[in-house]
Nucleic acid binder design. Sequence first.
DNA 1: TTGACATATTCCCGTATCGGAATATTATTA
DNA 2: TAATAATATTCCGATACGGGAATATGTCAA
Lengths: 115, 115
Amino acid sequence: MSRAATTSDVFNAIAEPRRREIIGLLAGGQARSVNDLVEAMGLAQPAVSKHLGVLREVGVVSVQQDGQRRLYSLNASELKAVHDWASQFERFWSAQVDRIKERAERKAAEVAKKN
Amino acid sequence: MSRAATTSDVFNAIAEPRRREIIGLLAGGQARSVNDLVEAMGLAQPAVSKHLGVLREVGVVSVQQDGQRRLYSLNASELKAVHDWASQFERFWSAQVDRIKERAERKAAEVAKKN
DNA sequence: TTGACATATTCCCGTATCGGAATATTATTA
DNA sequence: TAATAATATTCCGATACGGGAATATGTCAA
């Protein structure tokens, strides 16, 4: 068996840096034309269109026709799955943060005691 | 240019479902041997070893020798990047949740008014 | 040392990737 | 209708993937 298709799920879709870049560009909330994205990314138009196709297929992005352009906008709710999955591990590093905070407080208390 | 290597960054590493499965199995916090994972996953040993190799390379997992076994444990802090990236879009769906909550409250108020 | 066990590595195959080039499609304007 | 602009699709080459089979490496125990 080979690698899972990029279009199979969100995790595969966002594995590609250029696609994360597109998502970032659309994170402002306003729709952008393909050419707009092409210029912003310095990538050829077909390449951008293909990335948009993948994002469209997994539902991360949606299109809206505007004359002879196509305006793409972010459908961020589709990224919730990724957030939820990652949140599962939040306790690991938040515990670390807590420990650091605790240590800092102890240190501050010691300094206060000295003076 | 070809596809980015799986080992290039965490996003690529977690794109593969089997690797997310491994991460899930190690999320309990205790280290697990390769054979343990092999049995839990129903996948051949070389395949599991290779996935572990990828996760090791990006730092999501670390090894500890234990006799003739190798115990793998999760290094969840490496997943923080994914969480942080996804958090950037949290406002999109939390706004949605707020709207749903608001509507529910309005409805509850109406019902209360009726009775 | 020899044998058994646990794990990693190599090689191979079928498949999918990404980007470039060329072309097709769709929408607008003259 | 013809020409032009915006975008999508197809084909290609180089590359990497994931899994299976076979093999190598490493570790212990007798």
